[in-house]
Design a protein around this nucleic acid. Structure first.
Lengths: 156, 156
DNA sequence: GGGTTGATGATATAATATCCCAAGGTGCCG
DNA sequence: CGGCACCTTGGGATATTATATCATCAACCC
């Protein structure tokens, strides 16, 4: 995120995805999405709320949580459970391949710089599917959050 | 958990593990561990606190969080990030194979009955290791939480 | 005794998330 | 037009999860 071009692309794709799904990307929701996309690292709900207040003084926790719920539902952002923070979905256009909004994905979270990378590793996905199947477990969604040190911080 | 024999075994192994590690399983820590082991499903910190108060009226949030921190450090319990809840580690004796306390593991969480199963699937572990390596990422710890419906609830 | 360390007690506060009710807007249908 | 259903937002209160801080106490070492 954060390189200008990507942000605009992501926003355009978000609007297209909502259109396809019959969902409405209202100004408020779009603004929260912009705030998430503008963050380098995962961003907490209350940090979003603070920034939102600059243009909407009346904003309260439910304001941002409702918008986040919508964005999560529609696969436009993801939540990092270990951090209680949110990131934009960078798997541009995944909706083409998936009717459902929860495409399989994993995160690499750097403990040093906080940067978070979304990946879609099919070997991981398959191994998890297989493990669930072996346990007779019907998988709905898998959370994979890998913590460590990113390549850039290792170099430094 | 929760079948009598397992509980006692787990407690004995916990004491042995602490001994090996030079850590002290004090009465308080042991009691919190018992409370976690006695729960069928993952249990929240404040639920533990309520139960703890029965025998320790003065207990406060830090009381239980400090005990949980110790138990997490020593690999005796795990935290489920999606649920903000805690379970006993059922990988009995993993400390024999791992000097460090964070042995690789995954969870299967049933949305219907809440039951949570810890598994250690080497294919998943390897796939994650490989994905991290490919990204030049030094893995410290991976959180894998698989949500869905367990075999028993599927049958019903 | 004096000093250090580790564990606990106790109060307060921070950070994250949800509930509830009301108000406005939009479209649909009679 | 009027009424109704639906979705979205406003706004306040509250619930839930987690940490900060300072004091106390016991064990141990020298």
């Amino acid at each position: 995120m954060a390189e200008g071009a990507t942000r605009e692309t992501a926003l355009r794709e978000a609007e297209a995805a909502c259109l396809r799904r019959g969902a409405t990307l209202t100004p408020l929701r779009r603004q929260v999405l912009e705030l998430v996309l503008d963050s380098e690292a995962p961003v907490g709900a209350y940090a979003l709320l603070d920034r939102l207040k600059a243009s909407r003084p009346g904003a309260a926790p439910p304001t941002v949580y409702r918008a986040l719920d919508f964005l999560l539902e529609n696969g436009l952002v993801h939540k990092l459970e270990r951090l209680n923070a949110y990131v934009g979905c960078t798997d541009a256009g995944h909706a083409h391949g998936h009717d459902h909004h929860h495409h399989p994905h994993q995160f690499l979270i750097c403990r040093t710089c906080g940067a978070t990378t979304e990946i879609t590793d099919h070997a991981v996905t398959h191994a998890i599917d297989a493990a669930a199947r072996r346990a007779g477990f019907a998988l709905a969604q898998a959370t994979v959050e890998i913590e460590g040190t990113c390549a850039r911080c290792l170099a430094a």
